[in-house]
Design a protein around this nucleic acid. Structure first.
Length: 694
DNA sequence: ACCAAAATGCTTTTT
DNA sequence: GCATTTTGGT
């Protein structure tokens, strides 16, 4: 075997070679963190540790894939495949399927995505007769998620509720969980929560996991939340062969329940832990790193550290003021276009980073106009499209008949004469008997309480579903899905709904892509089944993007959150304005530190060139708002703000909920019209962007 | 029960 | 500004 330690600096060497006992690696941005983890795994293997005893957890699929690839390139395919490397969520989904019985869960449970979660919250509220006015469904939804991530159960909340609103929320939470259980569905948070509970409560399973996974590694440890910590702790508590790697300065998931205290307090959890600091940055040139250091130094609650560049000073970051987001986009794109034409750079060298999903639009338009290839990362567009959700709902019903959200989605799509009346009757029965909507429909059919037309239609639908539910030996998943869609005439429905020829083709192509996905899955899986296929689909949203080799050499557009862990020769950081980069909502919540870390993450993605832009005004909700240069830019350059500069500040609670079409600012400079934004944080996601493939 | 027109609410970040 | 949801008419 080659010398694994070649090219490692002394700290990296120590992190790799300390295999026994707890290890905390504080790895600043660009200090070779991934390298350390992968070489460490290779080293463990070379020391004779069997691959199945090694468990490595990541937060994103991308990170997991990259880690496996890199280990593979060192130790070869055969060994690498026996390692357990995956996201927390994937690991948990697998564990839950293996041990479903212990939790009173069907092995075929489905995983509900964000829109389904919201639907379920709404159902819970409807059943409890709670109006949208007393509790916003999206607010309830995000709070429930956060509570789960903080290991607070509905019962806990009910007991500790200090006001009416909290009690209301607790009751919705409780009913929401009941509904999920009834549907045999778990949400993203349950995956972690139930696995944690399983390991904590079931001595046998815990012992088995401890015995099996002797060496545990966790990437991005600063993003660990309560349930994840519980899982890791329960597995590693005894043998203590736990190596966590992270950077408190890059903790940007606090809103999701990530607890920065976990990395700050690791030595308390595991006394005697070896602590390794990686502070030599191999990624960026000196000036860029200076800028990053200056910004992050304004945070107080952190492990103090300063990144040192291993490279020359390079060029300082450029700060470009623009009039509005259109000019900003055109500046960025012209800049990129010029470099590409001059052949000093290729499209793949560039990344354009932004805070929110509403920003990429003008950039996309410009890039397309200039004919520059680009990839839009994130923006869950594909799986949010109506026809995709329809088809997946059908597939989910095959795997799990009790999935109510899915049944309700397709019960009358294509239209088959099952109207509101019939649906209400079914829901009524389901609630009355505390059974799933599927069982309630069966009951309604047996009792003959539905209109003849609806009755006949549902008989047919159920017959089709049941026919393709059981795997025929000769039949694979793909043809089962195909036949089912055939029998319900889904193609006809698509043609009927979309008059425009192009739209029709587009939509149907989307459906065909599901078939591609399924085929792809079948060829890879050892024993293909619907539940596992759906699990892959639910847990892997970024799959389509980076596999496509034709898009390799393209400008990358993504949010700052999505950019963590990545690097590009040239980075454009756009929209660095008060209210946007310290985001308004964060200013209101007092989480400025996390916004600053986001800025820090953005800066440290750049290898040799960083261009930061901000606009004087930006259109939002169709109205134009004035914007101030972000405070972070003053922190970065050390300049002091000019006389007329005003930071964004928390908004008064009294606002005008009735006014939809607000007038464009009347031009009075003292009264700031800049802030008119949503006042609640919401987990709702929209299909705001399209064009993820082609 | 179905379709078109009108109102609504959304936009912080993701597994 | 947009897409989705609700409404009102047939």
């Amino acid at each position: 075997m080659v010398n694994l330690f070649a090219g490692l600096n002394p700290e990296q060497h120590r992190a790799v070679s300390t295999t026994e006992g707890p290890v905390l690696v504080l790895a600043g941005a660009g200090t070779g963190k991934t390298r350390v983890i992968t070489v460490r795994i290779a080293y463990l293997l070379s020391e004779g540790v069997p691959p199945h005893q090694i468990l490595a957890m990541t937060f994103t699929n991308k990170a997991a894939r990259e880690m496996r690839e890199r280990v593979k390139s060192i130790v070869g395919k055969k060994l690498a495949e026996k390692l357990t490397i995956g996201t927390f969520h994937a690991f948990c989904a697998r564990t839950l399927r293996e041990h479903a019985e212990q939790l009173g869960l069907q092995k075929t449970f489905s995983i509900c995505d964000a829109p389904d979660q919201l639907t379920t919250v709404k159902t819970a509220m409807r059943e409890l007769r709670i109006s949208d006015a007393s509790l916003h469904p999206s607010f309830a939804n995000s709070r429930i998620s956060l509570l789960k991530n903080k290991l607070i159960t509905a019962k806990d909340l009910l007991e500790s509720a200090s006001d009416d609103k909290e009690e209301l929320l607790a009751r919705v939470y409780e009913r929401y969980d009941d509904l999920l259980r009834r549907q045999c569905v778990v949400d993203f948070d349950d995956l972690l929560l139930l696995t944690g509970g399983l390991l904590k409560q079931n001595d046998g399973i815990r012992a088995a996991f401890r015995d099996r996974y002797r060496y545990v590694m966790v990437d991005e440890y600063q993003d660990t939340n309560g349930p994840q910590y519980e899982i890791v702790f329960n597995i590693a508590e005894e043998h203590k062969n736990l190596c966590v790697v992270g950077d408190d300065d890059q903790s940007i998931y606090g809103w999701r329940g990530a607890d920065i205290e976990k990395i700050l307090g690791f030595e308390k959890d595991f006394p005697g832990a070896t602590v390794v600091r990686l502070e030599t940055n191999y990624r960026s040139t000196g000036h860029i790193l200076d800028a990053a250091n200056k910004v992050i130094a304004h945070n107080t609650d952190r492990h103090p550290k300063t990144l040192r560049s291993a490279q020359r000073a390079g060029t300082p970051p450029e700060v470009v003021p623009c009039d509005d987001e259109i000019e900003e986009a055109s500046h960025v794109v012209t800049d990129i276009g010029r470099a590409i034409r001059a052949q000093t750079a290729k499209p793949g060298d560039f990344a354009i980073l932004y805070r929110t999903q509403l920003q990429p639009r003008p950039l996309e338009a410009q890039l397309r106009a200039e004919g520059i290839p680009y990839i839009l990362v994130g923006g869950q567009s594909f799986f949010d499209r109506k026809e995709i959700r329809d088809v997946l709902a059908y597939v989910r019903l095959l795997a799990n008949p009790d999935d109510e959200a899915s049944l309700m989605r397709i019960i009358n799509r294509p239209a088959r004469g099952v109207g509101k009346g019939s649906v209400d009757k079914i829901i009524g029965l389901a609630t009355l008997h505390g059974e799933s909507a599927y069982a309630a429909t069966r009951r309604a059919l047996a009792e003959g309480v539905l209109k003849p037309l609806a009755s006949k239609a549902l008989e047919d639908l159920f017959q089709s579903l049941e026919r393709y539910r059981q795997p025929e030996p000769t039949d694979d998943i793909v043809s089962r899905i195909g036949h089912l869609l055939d029998e319900v005439s889904y193609r006809t429905e698509v043609d009927r709904t979309y008059r425009d020829e192009r739209a029709r083709r587009d939509r149907w192509n989307g459906v065909l892509e599901i078939f591609d996905l399924a085929e792809n899955y079948v060829t890879r899986a050892t024993s293909p089944n619907l539940s596992e296929f759906l699990e892959k689909v639910a847990l892997a949203q970024d799959d389509s993007t980076d596999e496509d080799p034709s898009k390799r050499n393209a400008v990358t557009l993504m949010t700052l959150h999505a950019a963590k862990g990545l690097e590009y020769p040239q980075v454009y950081l756009v929209g660095v304005e008060e209210g946007l980069l310290p985001h308004q909502a964060s200013i209101e919540e007092g989480t400025l530190d996390e916004e600053r870390r986001l800025m820090y993450v953005g800066i440290t993605r750049a290898q040799r060139r960083l261009v930061i832009s901000h606009a004087k005004s930006r259109s939002r909700f169709g109205t134009r708002n004035e914007a101030m240069k972000s405070r972070f830019l003053f922190e970065m350059t050390g300049e002091s703000p000019p006389e007329d500069w005003r930071p964004a500040h928390p908004k008064r609670s009294e606002d005008l909920p009735g006014t939809r079409k607000t007038k464009v600012s009347s031009g009075s400079p003292k009264k700031k019209t800049q802030k008119k934004t949503a006042r609640k944080k919401s987990a709702a996601r929209k299909s705001s962007s399209k064009q993820s493939r082609r």
